[in-house]
Simulated assay, not measured.
Amino acid sequence: MSINITDIKQYVYCPRVVYYNYVEPVPRKVSFKMEYARSQHFELNQKEKRRTLKRYNLVEGKRFYGLSVSSEALNLSGKLDILIDTEAESGQRFYPVECKDTDGKIYKNIIYQLVAYAMCIEEMTNTPVKKGYIYIIPEQKAHLIHITDNQKLYVRKITSMIKKIIQEEYYPEPRSKKRCRDCEFQRYCNDCDLPSLEAIKENDKLLMKKLFG
């Protein structure tokens, strides 16, 4: 079973998004925000083709847009916004870039999505990927992200937990009360008494212990 890399981002935001996408699919409307984000991505790609790599602190390289990447070992696949190939013979050659239309904050779910892309590129090219970029569209700024072994380990754990949700039809706890208020799936959850953040974290620890010992 192949997991879409966007599921990594969704799981970190809230595991129930994965549940409602796979186990109990529910109707989803394309919001204005989603349409706007798509148009912003298209406009960015057009501008990127005319720009240098100065904002990435790279001298030269080729850019590939909407590149399909995958990992057979991790059963992951997805479409990366931009891949920069510096054609370097030593050091890091390939740099993944994920573009986001956000308020400027670098959220953890976006970082782990980038890490998953990096892991796919490593497997596909047999080269190390220890750095990547998150490009914040409103800021027109590329943020350098250092990719660590601990982050890669956590992505592996997330993929195992996603598979558990899908295969065992496991109904996970919501991530936090704050996120529930703005979530498009709130009307389907109907939790009268949402758990505290501490309880959610403890539930995650117990689940990981069950999966990995």
Rank of each mutant, 00 (worst) to 15 (best):
K108A: 09
E169T: 08
F212W: 13
K54F: 11
Y13G: 00
E184C: 06
T159V: 15
Y107K: 08
T148W: 08
R28K: 15
V129A: 04
C183L: 10
R156V: 08
A73V: 08
C183H: 11
G132D: 07
P15G: 01
P27M: 10
E198A: 14
V17Y: 07
P25H: 09
G213C: 06
R156L: 10
S70P: 02
D182W: 08
L74I: 07
C192D: 14
K178Y: 09
R181D: 14
K62F: 10
A116R: 03
T159H: 01
I111M: 01
G61P: 06
K130Y: 10
N45K: 09
I158R: 01
E43A: 15
D204Q: 15
D193G: 06
L67R: 05
H143C: 08
E173K: 13
L44E: 04
H143L: 11
D149G: 04
I136R: 05
E173R: 12
L80E: 02
K33I: 12
G213W: 09
S160L: 12
E89D: 11
V97P: 03
A73E: 13
I147N: 04
I166W: 06
Q151E: 14
S176C: 09
Y65F: 15
L58M: 10
K157I: 07
A37C: 06
Y22H: 15
I110L: 02
G213R: 13
M208H: 08
F185D: 13
V97G: 02
